[in-house]
Design a protein around this nucleic acid. Structure first.
Lengths: 136, 136
DNA sequence: CTGTATCCAAACGGATACTG
DNA sequence: CAGTATCCGTTTGGATACAG
């Protein structure tokens, strides 16, 4: 809307070239993938709904604060739902939405790539580090 | 090689569950995808080699410092190569390796997903934000 | 041109204590 | 149990100045 930004149209925008407003949202989603917990939360929720404490245990190492913050963010983006059961001990369950499941598809491919190529990367790092210290 | 890590084999690790040492590297790669510039650098390099300044212009908004740091990291991981030409005005070209191109495949799918669903996410956010302020 | 080094502000994230 | 609020250390990243 606003004003089109006078794009240069300098060719095919492979990943993200013109840094417009729409692109910001994409960047935003990507950030969520890369942050410390979001993807792991989504992955853990893949098998089915879980309550707060179960989620925290399943993930392991995440603080209440971070779990809450991430959950809210994910919920806001429509990736998960939050259901409160009016019981004596408070009980809340989180579940992946269709959108959330959809995200998991390409995300998983990336994870698989990372897993498949982890060894190669490690080797490259060793070579690089060796060159920095021993060679000139 | 090393020692196999005595994997628990506790079922299907959807995304990343057992937080072992191998997993750390995967997390590492994912972090790089999620950080502010790496993916954009790789994407920009997709069409072919570019020199430092060209890269900086093409990306737009990245500082010298960040470009250098990210480039080094990418190089260390074997995702890009750095070639120095012994000319009067220093000239360095960066190019994607096969590994780098390989990463771009799943990464692009994620970007596409993000682009395709950006609108949905935006709507969800609006709904969520409205509920927080107006409803109870 | 291509970096490197320093300074500094903001964001991220953990620990803890407290509330409904 | 689920969540919020606060404090605080670590990391990230921009601006700038300087060097090869």
């Amino acid at each position: 809307m606003t004003e089109m930004e006078t794009v240069e149209a300098a060719g095919p925008p492979s990943v993200c070239q013109e840094h417009g407003a729409a692109n910001q949202l994409v960047r935003d989603l990507l950030d969520r993938i890369g942050d410390k917990w979001s993807l792991m939360i989504i992955g853990t929720l893949h098998r089915g709904p879980l309550r707060f404490s179960a989620l925290q245990q399943a993930i392991g190492g995440i603080s209440q604060r971070m779990l809450t913050l991430n959950l809210r963010q994910l919920q806001r983006d429509g990736l998960i739902t939050r259901t409160v059961y009016a019981e004596v001990p408070s009980r809340v369950e989180y579940e992946l939405t269709d959108l959330g499941h959809g995200l998991l598809v390409p995300a998983l491919e990336l994870v698989n790539w990372a897993a498949d190529n982890a060894e190669k990367v490690r080797v490259h790092r060793e070579i690089y580090d060796a060159e920095q210290g021993g060679t000139a």
